[in-house]
Design a protein around this nucleic acid. Structure first.
Length: 426
RNA sequence: GGGGAGGUUGCGGAGCGGUCAAACGCAGCAGACUGUAAAUCUGCCGCCCCAGUGGCUUCGGAGGUUCGAAUCCUCCCCUCCCCA
């Protein structure tokens, strides 16, 4: 049986606004819908996870999802939500990034399904060869400058000193043209996006109505917020990526585990496929025993599984359970290595550890846990450094081979959750 | 082409001849309290070391004036706004 997509998105809090009649449109025959993804990096980050999940849910409800990677528009830059003019990408960069994103989307979308296969398209296919005269005549004619100036994204930029370039100003028309093209090629009648995309999306709906006489729809999702007021998906190390080369599965898992109590239920709805009953159960668990953080654990497990798979979940959970115990020094080195496989590591030579040994401060710098020796020293003085889970009391402490786990390994930790493995090379 | 504003340590933003490694806010890091949460409080937040009323390199770039320059002068580079 087919699930009602609108209802599904609605109870999950994923509907911020929609054009009139979207709900009815989704209740009828399967529709083809699309979302655009930013090609500025070769990996998606958790900030893109909400739209990704929207496409996945869409497909599960029997509709046809299209992910459009903005190879063409990526050359331009969307002014929405951006205070400053963006740097432009080259065609080659965009192409490389596109390949990475394509692979990640494949974890969420079924491209093989015969009933409702997902699709990935690159709008560079139709935008790059676009003839300016033809575009201005056929498309530009349907936009008044007044209409474009009235768009929020443009208005904001006009009020600022730097202004907005004609290039970015044109973005709206291009995105509308994308929608029109997808309508023509695949019968796509719905566009989803973040709430900042509203103006661009409705422009596309208007264009399709004018040129094809068909009513297309738009549905936008809320901005993911954090209760603490920090930008979602950012940590001290920068963005949290889906690519395990950029953000290890262990850190990825930890990112979700550290979710604020006030956000965790909303995130479970956004980012997992758990149903209403399960989530309600977790909500009660959180209310009764917040210190157990069962909701956070579930969230971390589910999202990590979706992105990295079961094996990584188990490793991350095991590593997390060992994170704070002093027993770690008693474990076999091989086990520690296996558990913390994802953690960044550095090698030191036996010679470094000979004699007086290697200074902990020096090691912190080599492991990039501190930027300078001065900073490392301050950290140790402040009690923020641990070797094999024991706090280092003396900022001049040195390590010798005899203190390494089985003579092969140190686990260096800064604060609660910055881990680094130090391997002793033969 | 003309006129104006401006480039300061991640960001914002003070400073306008010594007391400036440079106020303040934000962000960040660590500690305490906790539940790997929040809030709060404390410390740190250019680099080096033998850690000190220590050394070194910074305020778009290059020169210069001066005992002394982020602060004054000259030239150059860059950004933004307005007019043409």
């Amino acid at each position: 049986m087919k699930l009602d997509l609108y209802a599904e998105l609605d109870w999950r809090g994923m509907v911020y606004a929609g054009t009139e009649g979207v709900r009815e449109a989704l209740a009828g025959a399967p529709v083809t819908a699309y979302i655009g993804f930013d090609p500025t990096a070769s990996s998606l980050h958790v900030g893109s996870l909400l739209p990704v999940m929207a496409l996945a849910r869409l497909q599960r409800c029997g509709h046809r999802p299209i992910a459009i990677v903005g190879g063409g528009t990526g050359l331009i830059g969307d002014p929405s939500g951006k205070a400053q003019e963006r740097t432009l990408l080259t065609l080659e960069q965009v192409e490389a990034n596109l390949q990475g994103i394509r692979a990640q989307l494949a974890r969420f979308l079924d491209f093989e399904s015969t009933a409702a296969p997902a699709r990935i398209v690159n709008n560079a296919d139709w935008l790059v060869g676009l003839d300016l005269m033809v575009f201005l005549r056929d498309i530009g004619k349907h936009f008044t400058v007044n209409y474009m100036l009235a768009k929020e994204s443009v208005k904001r930029r006009l009020q600022q000193d730097e202004g907005i370039s004609f290039t970015e100003f044109s973005y709206l028309m291009l995105q509308a043209y994308d929608f029109l093209t997808l309508f023509d090629r695949y019968g796509c009648t719905l566009q989803l996006g973040g709430s900042d995309q509203w103006g661009n999306i409705t422009a596309g709906c208007d264009l399709i109505r004018k040129l094809r006489g068909v009513r297309a729809h738009g549905l936008v999702m809320p901005l993911v917020t954090t209760a603490a007021g920090v930008k979602f998906g950012k940590t001290e190390a920068g963005a949290v990526w889906l690519d395990e080369q950029r953000t290890s599965p262990f850190r990825f898992y930890q990112f979700w585990l550290n979710t604020d109590d006030r956000d965790v239920i909303a995130y479970l709805k956004y980012f997992t496929f758990l149903g209403q009953d399960e989530i309600r159960g977790l909500e009660e668990a959180r209310a009764e025993a917040p210190e157990k953080r069962e909701a956070q654990r579930t969230l971390a497990r589910e999202v990590t599984r979706l992105v990295h798979g079961d094996a990584h979940v188990q490793r991350a959970e095991h590593a997390s359970s060992l994170l704070f115990g002093e027993r770690i020094a008693e474990l076999p080195a091989d086990e520690v290595l296996a558990v913390f496989e994802d953690v960044p590591s550095t090698e030191v030579s036996r010679a470094d550890l000979a004699g007086d040994g290697l200074g902990v401060a020096e090691l912190l710098v080599r492991a990039a846990l501190a930027k300078s020796r001065g900073e490392a020293t301050r950290l140790i003085k402040g009690g923020g450094v641990y070797v094999n889970n024991r706090r280092v009391a003396d900022e001049r402490a040195h390590l010798g081979v005899d203190q390494a786990i089985e003579g092969r390994l140190f686990l260096l930790r800064k604060g609660a959750r910055h881990l680094h493995l130090v391997r002793v090379a033969e």
